[in-house]
């Protein structure tokens, strides 16, 4: 195992976080704070309790997940796409590093950045709503699992993208709608019966409900269903990444 290479990629990617502090940390904190102000404080005041929790508190796990998903995707997809774009990826491809080691370096750094941002968001949330964590270990597990899974998914997007448009299209067109329609701001029980059934096909519903269970012990979906759905998606991402890197698809001739 080339530990020095993993460390080099990891620290190189983390450097990007410190260089772009505003974009990486302040920007998601500000946008999430606005969600708390608008939905939690203003609209939340007019909404009765949901599943025994105030609306302001209810949306905390969903907004946390929204941030983690989008951050993990953008961190890792940009992380691998930028060297492709600048051409500097040659030095990674020419170095004595296995595909597995490359993935650990990029995905590890992306997941770390997302965890840092997620932790800051969680602290920020306590200024706007009453936050209670009934199952802290499950919460940490889900945080790490989500960051890793979506960082890996972002890595795949970065590898497969041939231009900036393709890099943006999946997060914007697919992931953001899934998150908003995944119950981050409402309980799916509030939906009409038909849309409730449609929601069960949205994987993000399982993530958000898993996290909501970790916070308040309430969920529309069984916690184990949520965890296994996440693990299943992680497995799909791992297999796809191994396949693409082994074939050298879109990175090697």
């Amino acid at each position: 195992m080339n530990y020095y290479a993993i460390k080099a990629i990891y620290l190189h990617e983390m450097d990007r976080l410190w260089r772009t502090l505003f974009q990486s940390i302040l920007s998601p904190v500000v946008s999430t704070s606005l969600y708390f102000i608008v939905f939690g404080s203003v609209i939340g005041g007019m909404v009765p309790q949901v599943d025994g929790v105030s609306y302001g508190s209810f949306i905390v796990p969903g907004l946390l997940m929204l941030t983690l998903l989008t951050q993990s995707l953008s961190n890792s997809s940009f992380g691998i796409y930028m060297p492709k774009f600048s051409g500097s990826i040659y030095e990674i491809l020419a170095a004595p590093i296995s595909s597995f080691e490359i993935v650990i370096g990029f995905v590890g750094a992306s997941a770390t950045k997302s965890l840092i941002v997620g932790s800051i968001i969680l602290i920020t949330a306590t200024f706007f709503a009453e936050v209670r964590i009934d199952h802290p270990f499950v919460m940490v597990f889900l945080l790490v699992l989500t960051c890793l899974t979506f960082s890996l998914f972002g890595f795949l997007i970065g590898i497969l993208s041939e231009n900036f448009e393709q890099l943006q299209v999946i997060p914007l067109i697919v992931v953001t709608p899934l998150v908003f329609l995944g119950g981050s701001l409402y309980s799916i029980e509030m939906l009409p019966e038909f849309w409730q059934q449609v929601s069960y096909f949205n994987p993000v519903v399982y993530l958000i409900n898993g996290m909501r269970w970790a916070f308040y012990g309430v969920s529309d979906i069984n916690i184990w269903t949520s965890v296994f759905t996440m693990l299943g998606f992680l497995l799909i991402c791992i297999v796809s990444t191994i396949f693409i890197l082994t074939k050298g698809y879109r990175i090697k001739s």
Partner: peptide, 9 residues
Amino acid sequence: YTRGLYGKS
């Protein structure tokens, strides 16, 4: 960074 990629401390 490049030195690290090649497995050198």
